[in-house]
Write a protein that binds this DNA or RNA. Sequence first.
DNA 1: CTGAAAGCGCTTACAG
DNA 2: CTGAAAGCGCTTACAG
Lengths: 338, 338
Amino acid sequence: MITIKDIAAEAGVSVMTVSNVINHNHARVSPATEQRIRDIMEKYSYVPNMAARSLISKSSRIIAVLLPMWHGSTASMLRDPYAGQLAGYLEELLREREYYVMLCSFENAEQVLQVQRTWQMDGMILILPHEDPVTRELVQKTQKPLVVIDRRYDDLETLSVCLDDRAGGCLATQYLLKKGHRKIAFAAPSIYESSVIRDRFEGYRAALAEYGLTEREDWLFDNVSLQAGGEAVAEAISRMSDRPTAVVATEDLLACGIIKGCQGRGIQVPMDLSVMGFDDSMPARLITPGLTTVAQDIREKADQSVKMLMRAIEDPSFRNDHRVLGVRVKERQSVREL
Amino acid sequence: MITIKDIAAEAGVSVMTVSNVINHNHARVSPATEQRIRDIMEKYSYVPNMAARSLISKSSRIIAVLLPMWHGSTASMLRDPYAGQLAGYLEELLREREYYVMLCSFENAEQVLQVQRTWQMDGMILILPHEDPVTRELVQKTQKPLVVIDRRYDDLETLSVCLDDRAGGCLATQYLLKKGHRKIAFAAPSIYESSVIRDRFEGYRAALAEYGLTEREDWLFDNVSLQAGGEAVAEAISRMSDRPTAVVATEDLLACGIIKGCQGRGIQVPMDLSVMGFDDSMPARLITPGLTTVAQDIREKADQSVKMLMRAIEDPSFRNDHRVLGVRVKERQSVREL
DNA sequence: CTGAAAGCGCTTACAG
DNA sequence: CTGAAAGCGCTTACAG
């Protein structure tokens, strides 16, 4: 492998001068020398060894994209389409800034802190955070900048980028109310376990309250899993004598499941039941009827996260900031006007 | 930061002995000393600095997951759900073996070779390879082990893991033939540009030939994009006087688009038209009717790729091997018996 | 079983 | 504008 030493020898200068060229210390090298050195580097397509550089500089230009594992397994959550998209955008935005992206699934905070030191990482971005003590511990113990996406801590100094989930839940419900619906159900994986879902639920209640309505216990579908959950909701609704006319689901996949379940049970969507989703993921476009859903801008989320991280890397005093991104309704055909 | 030197000092041994403990050279350290050193490392939660290690060893335990960019943009293909899933499995399998995963999108071969040297990567896995000269150049020039997924080169020494796409196309078509269909269309993004699609098409023709049939030009839907492509196919079919009774699509998303297009044009699936997909991706389960499709085992693909890479890292003479994985039909409700 | 020395490829003060 | 020296944290032969 060709090193800085070889370049220096051929150029007839010291390694120091070559180092100054690499690091763009223009003031320290004459233009003529610089050009000569650049030509030689080009000729051998020399690239600096990052191991040597980071050994001295204590910085590697590596940013970790952190992913928790599926509960109770060592599986990577990257297979979740949302995670893939987000990671893709992050990679894109970090690459533009000449950072390297390391993918790290983890089970506990210590693993992350270790790998961070192992590579002297410059920063980390956590996606799909679980609602468990591990993430909290990580946020508290990290020495390097960490941006958490989709989770806020009111009592901790953190850098975070979230959606305005309350507004999202509210918007979805208002949309249905404006279409004339008054009997609106709510379906979520588990209403009380995640702050995100809690916020959406609060938004739902707030919107109902605006119209003088309150939620009905029997129209709250809590703790439905994503896989079969939607179908279970459809099944439950089909058995009711007093049915809701619409349902707000906190995730598109859940909404899709509900629609599929309805179709097998003679309930027409949207004629008999209107369905709102959340995310605007690919399946929302593919199913029939197209799913009306609360859309977020994932690229914007990635962009804000990277910008926040960059600022934190430059400014050690910048360790507490929260960004809340807006949402909007994407209309398709799963909601009917009453 | 705590270093090997600090550990050595506290244990009253040389740094060399600590190094031997880290590197599991059990023969070179007495059990008692080893335990003492381990305790001290634990106490300070010491982790070795990889930059220093790889500087000497010329190996970093970093594996690149390589992704080409979308043609004509700098966007990462990771947002493709298939890429995300595959990358997730790869991360999982590499992590188990104590490798680190770096995510690298690239436009040209030189970029990859540079970053490989920058980090002294041990190996690379290329996913979603384009059918262009860049990948070919990369395969030819790389000095380090490279496993290419989903693309084979008959004239180059490579490590590759592919699906048996010909068998897949054949299986899909045979399935329809056995259900009594004789008028079978074929839809693909672009039949002649990708070896994968070409193979599936060949399988389709071979299956038809078994029944003494040949393909009909007007039932070949070539060059349909994924987004609107499916709907365009449905539109074209709806205008035909002599319609096919079934269609083989080379991707689930395309198949979903066809189904959605049919539903808007009064064509019932599967009553009027049977549809076969390829991939068994999430939307296949979510749409109604459920999509009957050719399924592949993505985890197995990742597993074979990682195993191949590991062998190549250990054995420098192992640079030419090809693995072909089987496929099977996953039955749902989009195909009707005639 | 243990250690002293050299060196991996670079950068960082410090001189000139 | 340029260079000689020291050193980042580790491993690799080589002695003992």
